Simulated assay, not measured.
Amino acid sequence: MKIDFLQLYAEVEVNYDITNTVLKPLRINLNKLNKTLPHYDKLFKTTDYELVFTISATQENKNLVYGPTTSSKNKVVYFTIFIPYKTFNSFTQQIYYILDTIAEGIIFVFNKYKTDPSGVNEVFETLKTLIAKDPERYQKWLKDLED
């Protein structure tokens, strides 16, 4: 199973600018955990499928995680993680809040589908440590950031 992220913001002026310099290492390191969801292993008859978390923000009081929406044809499972919208004084405070909420959403999904979430928090904490050391790097979108 490969984990990936999308961002979709449906509410006007309610969004977070999460750069590819944040999402790429997050995706790579979560995929290194080699997790799968047994329910979808059976449904797709393979562990070669995508688990896509759509990141969104909301001013409403919504559930943290919505989904799944499943595409059997494309072997993709979509969940949406709604991050309650807040403003922050610094990029570091904001990105920590975002990352903590995404981690909570992923762990929720793993627990729901009886997948051991061990390692997930460590991936997020490692990324937060890197961001703390060089926040300016993680605020920028990089054109040549390849997999």
Rank of each mutant, 00 (worst) to 15 (best):
L6M: 06
W141G: 08
K86E: 08
V120D: 14
K32R: 13
T92E: 13
T87V: 09
F53D: 11
L33Q: 15
R137L: 13
Y40L: 00
T92C: 01
T115Y: 01
K42D: 15
P84E: 11
V14L: 09
S56C: 02
L37D: 05
Y66S: 03
K62N: 15
T46W: 00
E146T: 14
L6T: 05
G67L: 12
I131M: 13
Y40M: 12
I106D: 04
H39Y: 08
E136D: 11
K133W: 02
F79P: 15
I95W: 03
F108A: 02
D144K: 14
T21Q: 03
D134T: 03
N31Q: 03
H39C: 03
G67I: 03
D116H: 07
E146R: 05
K133Q: 14
L37H: 01
K2H: 11
I106W: 01
K62F: 14
V77P: 07
P25I: 00
Y85T: 12
T58F: 11
E11R: 08
T101I: 07
L51S: 00
N121A: 08
T36S: 07
Q94A: 12
Y97H: 11
W141M: 10
T101S: 12
K133P: 04
T58L: 13
D144T: 06
E60M: 15
E125I: 08
I3C: 00
I81Q: 13
V14M: 15
T80R: 08
T69N: 13
D100P: 01
